[in-house]
Amino acid sequence: MADDLLVTHEGAVRVLTLNRPDKLNALNPALHEALAGAFAAIEADETVRAVLLTGAGRGFCAGADLGQNIGGEMRDLGASIDAHYNPLVRRMRGLGKPVVAAVNGVAAGAGANLALAADIVVACDSATFTQAFIRIGLMPDAGGTFFLPHLVGDARARGLAMLGETVTAREAAAMGMIWRCLPDAGFAEAALALAATLAAKPAQAIAAMKVAFNAAFTNGLDAQLDLERDLQRGLGRTADFAEGVRAFAEKRPARFNGGS
Rank of each mutant, 00 (worst) to 15 (best):
D3G: 04
D4E: 14
L6R: 14
H9G: 00
A12L: 07
V13A: 12
L16G: 09
L18H: 13
K23H: 13
N25T: 01
A26K: 02
L27I: 10
P29H: 06
L31I: 12
L31T: 14
A34P: 01
L35V: 05
A38Q: 03
F39C: 02
A40V: 05
A40E: 15
I42V: 15
E43T: 07
T47A: 15
V48I: 14
V48R: 10
V51W: 06
L52H: 13
L52F: 13
L53P: 05
G57H: 09
G57A: 04
G57R: 02
A62H: 09
G63L: 05
G71P: 01
G72D: 10
M74L: 07
R91T: 12
R93T: 01
G94V: 12
L95D: 06
K97S: 03
V100N: 08
A107G: 00
A108D: 12
A112C: 09
N113W: 03
L114W: 06
A115F: 07
L116Y: 05
A117T: 00
V122Q: 07
A123K: 00
A123E: 14
A127N: 10
T128P: 11
T130R: 15
T130Q: 14
F133Q: 14
F133I: 00
F133L: 01
F146R: 14
P149E: 12
L151H: 12
L151W: 08
G153R: 02
A155W: 08
R156H: 10
G159A: 11
G159T: 12
L163S: 14
R170K: 07
M177C: 09
L182K: 11
P183H: 13
A188R: 04
E189I: 05
A199Q: 06
K201C: 12
A203T: 06
A205Y: 11
A207Q: 12
A207T: 09
K210H: 13
V211I: 13
N214Y: 00
A215N: 02
A216S: 15
T218N: 04
G220T: 01
A223H: 02
L225S: 04
E228C: 13
Q232T: 13
G234I: 05
T238Y: 07
T238L: 03
A239D: 03
F241D: 03
F241I: 03
E243Q: 09
R246Q: 11
R246K: 08
A247V: 11
F248G: 02
A249H: 03
K251F: 04
A254E: 03
R255K: 10
